[in-house]
Computed example of a mutant assay.
Amino acid sequence: MADKKVNPIGNALGLLRIRVKRGINLAVRDISSSDPYVIVRLGKQKLKTCIIRKSLNPEWNEDLTLCVTDPNEPIKLFVYDHDTFSLDDKMGDAEFDISPFLEAVKLNLEDVPDRTVIKKVIPDRKNCLVEESSIVWKDGKVTQNMFLRLRNVECGEIELQLHWIDLPSTRSL
């Protein structure tokens, strides 16, 4: 008997592309600096940026793409300092809710002028936002820029940008 494999794309709403832009004022974990990288988690999916050597203000500008199946599941970020001869040090974590972003994606926005703000997300105790984050219609796509304050650490923020990728519908013939 063959094992049944669940296809995560089968019940996917679409793909969320997260551009991990940069870190700001990250915590020192080595003698005078850190070698940070970011892990992004959604459910069982886990993606990692490259390591930026000796920087407290790293610029990754790296795209990580997650398959979204549950709009209510938060995206979790973990920042670590890479160490060669010991376990990597934690440099904080954050999470955010993608449901406001997904609500904007569902809207019919073709006739909306470029750079129109669709919705504003206000910082609260659940979302780790540093400041208000706008969901914008730009270049024919819904995008959201956000700054997240890292928790469980003395300092640090991460700047992200969200983009949505629709999956072509799969129909059996």
Rank of each mutant, 00 (worst) to 15 (best):
Asp88Leu: 00
Val121Phe: 02
Val121Arg: 04
Arg151Ala: 00
Leu107Ile: 06
Glu132Asp: 12
Gln161Ala: 08
Ser134Lys: 07
Asn145Cys: 09
Leu160Pro: 03
Gln144Ile: 11
Ala94Ile: 07
Gly92Asp: 09
Val153Tyr: 04
Leu87Ser: 14
Asp124Cys: 10
Asp88Lys: 05
Gln161Pro: 01
Ala94Asn: 08
Gly92Cys: 11
Leu160Cys: 11
Phe101Ser: 15
Glu131His: 11
Asn108Met: 06
Arg151Leu: 02
Phe147Tyr: 05
Pro113Tyr: 11
Asn145Gln: 11
Gln144Tyr: 10
Leu129Asp: 01
Leu160Arg: 06
Cys155Ala: 05
Asp97Trp: 07
Leu150Gly: 04
Lys106Tyr: 02
Phe101Cys: 15
Asp111Asn: 14
Glu132Lys: 12
Glu154Val: 11
Phe96Cys: 13
Asp166Ile: 04
Leu87Gln: 14
Glu103Ser: 15
Asp88Asn: 14
Asp93Tyr: 08
His163Thr: 09
Leu87Phe: 10
Glu132Val: 12
Arg125Cys: 08
Asp97Phe: 08
Asp124Thr: 05
Leu150Trp: 02
Phe147Cys: 06
Thr143Phe: 04
Ile165Thr: 04
Val153Ile: 13
Asp88Val: 04
Ile158Phe: 02
Leu107Thr: 07
Met146Lys: 09
Thr143Val: 15
Glu131Asn: 11
Val121Met: 00
Met91Thr: 00
Leu109Asn: 14
Pro123Met: 03
Asp88His: 09
Trp137Tyr: 15
Leu148Pro: 02
Val153Arg: 03
Gly156Trp: 00
Pro123Glu: 02
Leu109Arg: 14
Ser134Cys: 05
Lys141Thr: 15
Gly92Ile: 09
Val153Ser: 06
Arg151Trp: 01
Asp89Gly: 02
Arg151Phe: 01
Phe96Gln: 09
Lys120Trp: 01
Asn152Met: 01
Ala94Pro: 08
Glu132Pro: 02
Cys128Val: 03
Glu159Trp: 04
Lys119Ala: 09
His163Gln: 07
Asp111Leu: 15
Leu87Tyr: 09
Val153Asn: 03
Met146Pro: 04
Arg149Ile: 05
Asp88Gly: 02
Ile118Pro: 00
Lys141Arg: 14
Ile122Arg: 03
Ile165Arg: 01
Asp97Lys: 12
Asp111Ala: 14
Gln161Gly: 03
Asp93Met: 11
